[in-house]
Design a protein around this nucleic acid. Structure first.
Lengths: 357, 357
DNA sequence: TGTTAGCACTCAAACGAAGCGAGTGCTAAC
DNA sequence: GTTAGCACTCGCTTCGTTTGAGTGCTAACA
């Protein structure tokens, strides 16, 4: 595939291409020369436009579903459109007053939970855009610090292990312990663990520390093992990136999914969490806001779809990514604006202190 | 609508009705008299069957999509089928060895979490039946006991409230507290709370108890309020029934959802958690295993669907419900067997001690 | 040389008639 | 009561026709 050279296209061709894509995104129908000549009066006749369209097709920016139909953008066309042609919608994308209230009230809620907020955000994005939102929260690559670690007696033979991470996520697991472990012993273990582990990174935990706990609490090492297991389990849960999909059924409203087979493929894909995580993280690693058009995506079943992702960071730490999945003919401008909008909201909400815009 | 009288139908009509429904469930096509005469040789000619079919139609058990087509069961027909005609499949429904391993390994996992197990079970049910599974876990009507309640210092001005319930569910919330509250104070509060609340029912908690905590710890009552708020929040979370849907896309494989509009209606419905909870709980209140056929369901959009639900109890306490959603023409026998199967598994797993079969 | 009017051509989609065939109801005979 | 036979119904498929949006090309024009 040839790399785009800036002056390959004169400005008139650009203008026409933009008009075609704009129209196609709106009308969902192949665009003919007459439509462009009439609707976007650029002082040219349909015949001229026709010639230009033929050129654009030859250059690979457009294609024809069949001879006697209008033109539709190719992937290359969309790419150029996204990179250089489209104008970002600044207005009309703002959520309704009601939705705004929703967000605000959620954000101001004292109890801040990352995954809850991401969920909330994804719902807004999906509703604003009418496409499906995919949320991946958590970031297995960053190293987490432990804020607090406690062991809590539940009943004889059962203990709860609890970890609070530096992003205020809480993970816990219940383990069976030797019945000889009393509530009082657990309390001591708890104090020691807290003292020893708080402020440390997850990967700093090692067997020596366990030994220290055993010594200082007087609890036999053997009996501590289930507790260590519980800690490991908590960490595993914390490392697990969570995926969540919102508004899958919205996709069915778009004509490109009228084919039930295609619809099914995509919907089934949305259940495959590992694939989704891969896909989204693949994008997010490339930077802030990424647009993947059609086959730019590695997943075969998404060849007729585009994905736009935005990553969220607070204090330089990437906490999650929200992606929007829609047909290749999506309203890129709307999607990007919506994502930017909730990103701002999320980052302010999560950061705690609202920044000046 | 006339109520079914047991001897309204002679046994031959019953046999024919059963054959028709069996065939329809399998073939997904209207069933003609010739098919029945040939496939299920009951020593009758197609003409005779035709007469009987005409009778059955008149009685409301069958209907014709159009004059020159075969018959399909009506809701009344399905009802009779489910109640008295169908034979439960005992074989062929058992999960594959692989799936069995899956279940076992999950069930034996020491760390037992209700919602995780229900999720697992729902996936199995959905896979076995090829329909959508709906899980509602938690039961707002039963009164929960608190096994443990703790407050954990997280950092200055932040505390974690933690509740362990009698079914081993763990709920927590992080609240902002007055910075003057030290970790040491929180520990004391924790001990007192645990002492005071453990073993009590959620609804037993009252302001007097808070006062007691304030007195015995010497922490001003005012400063305890955020903590109370956290407790309330935990309880709210615990009372929230959780809903979860598995395998929604499987529905699309069935011909009755070839119509994209219908498919969309149902898929959208699956996002409406409150409606789902209502529906499932409405069934589960009626007893163990419930079949709702077509319009027996209150939800309009599900008029072409049936729902089969099974509730799970341990020690007489209802913990959750799994439902299967499919087209009215679902394989009821298969669905019921599958639900029974995982119910057994779940109840054994949750009860702790495996019972003899 | 670029633009435009005009015209022949293409082809998917919409429409309609014809034929097929699965299935029925009815009648008459067994 | 059962069955064979037959006329009839009606949705589906097939196939030819028409329609119309849209094109490419050519020739004339500025």
């Amino acid at each position: 595939m040839k790399v785009l050279e800036p002056n390959e296209l004169d400005s008139r061709k650009m203008l026409i291409l933009k008009a075609i894509i704009d129209d196609y995104i709106e009308s969902k129908e192949p665009v003919g020369s007459r439509t462009i000549a009439k609707k976007y009066d650029m002082g040219l006749s349909s015949a001229t436009i026709r010639n230009e369209m033929a050129d654009l097709e030859e250059m690979g920016y457009l294609s024809q579903p069949h001879t006697s139909a209008g033109r539709i953008p190719s992937e290359k066309g969309y790419r150029l459109y996204v990179d250089r042609l489209m104008n970002l919608k600044e207005q009309g994308i703002e959520p309704t007053a009601e939705e705004l209230g929703d967000i605000k009230s959620h954000m101001q809620h004292k109890i801040s939970e990352l995954s809850e907020q991401m969920r909330m955000a994804s719902e807004i994005v999906s509703r604003l855009t009418d496409y499906t939102a995919i949320v991946v929260s958590g970031n297995s690559r960053r190293s987490m610090r432990i804020k607090a670690l406690q062991t809590v007696p539940v009943e004889t033979g059962k203990a709860l292990i609890l970890i609070v991470l530096d992003d205020d996520r809480v993970k816990n697991s219940i383990v069976s312990v030797d019945p000889s472990i009393t509530a009082e012993m657990l309390m001591r273990i708890s104090v020691q663990c807290n003292l020893l582990f708080s402020g440390h990174r997850v990967e700093d935990i090692n067997m020596d520390m366990i030994d220290t706990v055993a010594e200082s609490t007087g609890v036999p090492r053997m009996l501590l093992y289930p507790i260590v297991e519980g800690i490991v389990e908590c960490i595993r849960k914390a490392e697990n990136t969570e995926v969540y999909t919102e508004g899958a059924s919205r996709l069915l409203a778009h004509p490109e999914f009228n084919d039930i087979g295609k619809a099914r493929n995509v919907l089934e894909l949305l259940n495959k969490e590992d694939l989704l995580v891969d896909m989204i993280q693949d994008c997010s690693s490339a930077g802030g806001l990424v647009v993947r058009i059609g086959s730019e995506n590695k997943i075969q079943d998404l060849n007729d779809c585009s994905v736009v992702t935005a990553s969220y960071s607070v204090n330089g730490v990437e906490l999650g990514t929200i992606g929007v999945l829609g047909p290749t003919r999506m309203d890129y401008s709307k999607v990007i604006s919506a994502l930017e909008y909730v990103r701002k909201g999320l980052e302010e909400g999560l950061g705690g202190k609202p920044k000046a815009e």
